[in-house]
Amino acid sequence: MSTILRATGITKNYAIGKQQIPVLRGVDLSIKAGEKVALLGTSGAGKSTLLHLLGLLDAPTSGTIEYDGREVQSLPVGERARLRHQQVGFVFQFYHLIPELTALQNVLLARMMDTSVLQYWGKRKQAKASAVEMLQHVGLGERLHHRPTELSGGERQRVAIARALIAEPKIVLADEPTGNLDSATAKEVVDLMFTIQQERQLAFLLVTHDEGLATRCDRIIRMKDGYVVDQDLTSDEQAR
């Protein structure tokens, strides 16, 4: 399978006053199409920071990030935004839904990001249909017109998943998506994510503190203090 995302020698320093604080100290990783990867590590290891860099939300201090073999870390802002829209879907621990919008509108919004008013008007019916379908797929067919405040945590995260997937990205970057959910709900959400991952052959990079969840992935990457300490197959695969 082809590598869709490759990071080489990533470092990231944050400047606090005059001091440079190194957060990532040279991270290499690559993710193949359709692969599920878990990213584990102690708090403060730099997992979220790495995810933001891989998702082109921020630029690394040094190192390269390649999407489909193309270096992207120093592209102009607009280019990176387009790539982010086309390639990456984000799911966060705190859902980050827009409170003014209904579930359906939150999902539709992600669909509107790169179209002009006129373009969108032309395919608005189609866009709406696919957003409804997406929400039905995540089990929220009955909650289309609920605001985030009218949804439970698990439901919110499902909306966030629908939103991350509506623009048909190739890779989903999820930062502790179940960190705020009870274990039963977390399992449902994870099952849902993995089902869709299977269906669409998405690449998945999942930051988590849950070892159990990590073992359900194809591969586990462990981080500590800005380094990748272990990049290995899951124990199941090793056993084979």
Binding site: V77, H85, H96, L109, M113, A167
Partner: peptide, 16 residues
């Protein structure tokens, strides 16, 4: 301001 992060994550730019 909270929405600005998510807009950016979905492919928005500062000018957007």
């Amino acid at each position: 301001t909270a929405d600005i992060g998510i807009l950016t994550a979905m492919g928005g730019t500062p000018s957007g």
